[in-house]
């Protein structure tokens, strides 16, 4: 019995900088979560994850993270992913730094 598949994005950390990145539809990794591809099909998602796991020169630890579609692209469904796309709450570091700069 398989559980119902939650729509997901594929996310990882960039090898060199450690920065959080997301897999786009064109196979590029983007530091911008809004550019992520949202997978609604379980088989396709698994397939792309397997491909991403072979991207060891670009990223570390790719995984599927539940997401939902929003006006500006995929949005996280769990707070852990919300923190990853924003940065820590004690300093304006991480993504929020770059996103503020536009």
């Amino acid at each position: 019995m398989s559980r119902r598949f939650t729509p997901s994005v594929i996310t990882a950390n960039a090898l060199l900088s450690g920065e959080v990145v997301w897999l786009c539809a064109d196979g590029q990794w983007s530091p911008d979560p809004r550019a992520a591809a949202l997978f609604t099909d379980a088989d396709l998602a698994q397939d792309r994850l397997a491909w991403a796991q072979g991207q060891a020169q670009a990223v570390v630890g790719p995984y599927l993270a539940g997401a939902k579609s929003g006006p500006d692209g995929p949005e996280p469904v769990h707070f852990r992913e919300a923190f990853r796309r924003r940065g820590p709450s004690n300093y304006p570091h991480g993504k929020q730094e770059a996103l503020c700069r536009g």
């Binding site: 900088s17 450690g18 959080v20 923190f83 990853r84 991480g94």
Partner: peptide, 14 residues
Amino acid sequence: LRLMNGLYLQLHAY
């Protein structure tokens, strides 16, 4: 090897 040298990968960075 990196862990032996104290290097972790965390949520936002190493």
